[in-house]
C-alpha cells in the first residue's frame, strides 16, 4: 500500500519531466512561428499555392456573357447584365458585380466558366470599413464590353496553370465607389428572381 503510494508519486514526477524534456528540446530548435504580416519575405498571396481559392476576380475581356456562373452560384453572389445591340445583333456586357461579402468561395462558378474569365485569386484579406465596398464592380456603369466569342480554330485563353495569378491586385487598390442605390437595386433583383421558392 505504502509502496504503491510512493510509486505513484515517482510515476507522476518522472512523467512530468518526460513531457518537460520534450518542451525543452523545442527551445533549442528553430521556431516555426512566422511573424505575420511584417516579417515575411514576400506578401502572403504570392506564397499561397495556385490552387488556393481566394476572392473571385473577373477578366471581362474574355467573358462570353453565358451567365453560367450566375446560375450556378448557390448564394446569388454574382449579378450579370447584358445588352443586345438590335442592329448588329452583338451582345454586350453591361454589368458584372460580385458581392464578396456574400461569397463563400466554394469555387463552383469557376468550374463552369468556359473561358476561365472568372476565377479565384490568391487574395483573401477583404478588409473594408463599409460592407458596401465589398461589392466588386468589374464593369463601370455606362461601359459596354463586347462579349467574347469562342472561335473553333483558336483555343480559348483559359487559365494559366500553376502560376500565381493576381489580376485582382490592380482593382483592389482602388475600389470603385458605389452608390448605395445601385446596391439596393441588385438586392431587389435578388429578391425577384430568387431561387428560394416555397415548396
Amino acid at each position: 500500500m505504502l509502496k504503491q503510494y510512493f510509486k505513484n508519486i515517482k510515476n507522476a514526477s518522472t512523467s512530468i519531466f518526460e513531457g518537460l524534456a520534450v518542451t525543452l528540446s523545442y527551445m533549442v530548435r528553430k521556431p516555426i512561428t512566422i511573424q505575420y504580416p511584417d516579417r515575411i519575405e514576400k506578401p502572403l498571396p504570392e506564397m499561397l499555392p495556385p490552387t488556393f481559392r481566394g476572392i473571385l476576380e473577373v477578366d471581362t475581356g474574355i467573358c462570353t456573357v453565358c451567365m453560367a456562373c450566375m446560375k450556378r452560384c448557390p448564394l446569388d453572389t454574382i449579378y450579370i447584365e447584358s445588352e443586345r445591340d438590335p442592329e448588329t445583333r452583338k451582345n454586350y456586357l453591361t454589368r458584372f458585380d460580385i458581392d464578396v461579402a456574400r461569397c463563400m468561395v466554394c469555387g463552383l462558378c469557376t468550374e463552369v466558366c468556359p473561358t476561365g474569365a472568372i476565377r479565384h485569386s490568391t487574395e483573401f484579406d477583404a478588409v473594408t470599413s463599409d460592407v458596401i465596398n465589398l461589392v466588386m464592380r468589374y464593369v463601370q456603369p455606362g461601359d459596354k464590353i463586347p462579349a467574347y466569342k469562342v472561335s473553333k480554330e483558336e483555343e480559348p485563353p483559359g487559365v494559366p496553370q500553376n502560376e500565381p495569378y493576381c489580376r485582382l491586385k490592380k482593382q483592389w487598390d482602388a475600389p470603385a465607389p458605389l452608390q448605395p442605390d445601385e446596391v439596393r437595386g441588385a438586392v431587389r433583383w435578388k429578391k425577384q428572381t430568387s431561387k428560394q421558392e416555397g415548396r
Binding site: 499561397l48 488556393f52 481559392r53 463563400m104 466554394c106
Partner: peptide, 25 residues
C-alpha cells in the same frame, strides 16, 4: 489540403463522379 483542394477548412473538394482538382505535380 490547400494544395489538394484549395481551402483549409471548408474543402468543397468532391463532385458527383470524382473530385474537383487533380494533384499538383
Amino acid at each position: 489540403m490547400e494544395k489538394i483542394c484549395g481551402a483549409r477548412l471548408n474543402y468543397n473538394y468532391m463532385r458527383f463522379g470524382g473530385v474537383s482538382l487533380d494533384y499538383m505535380p
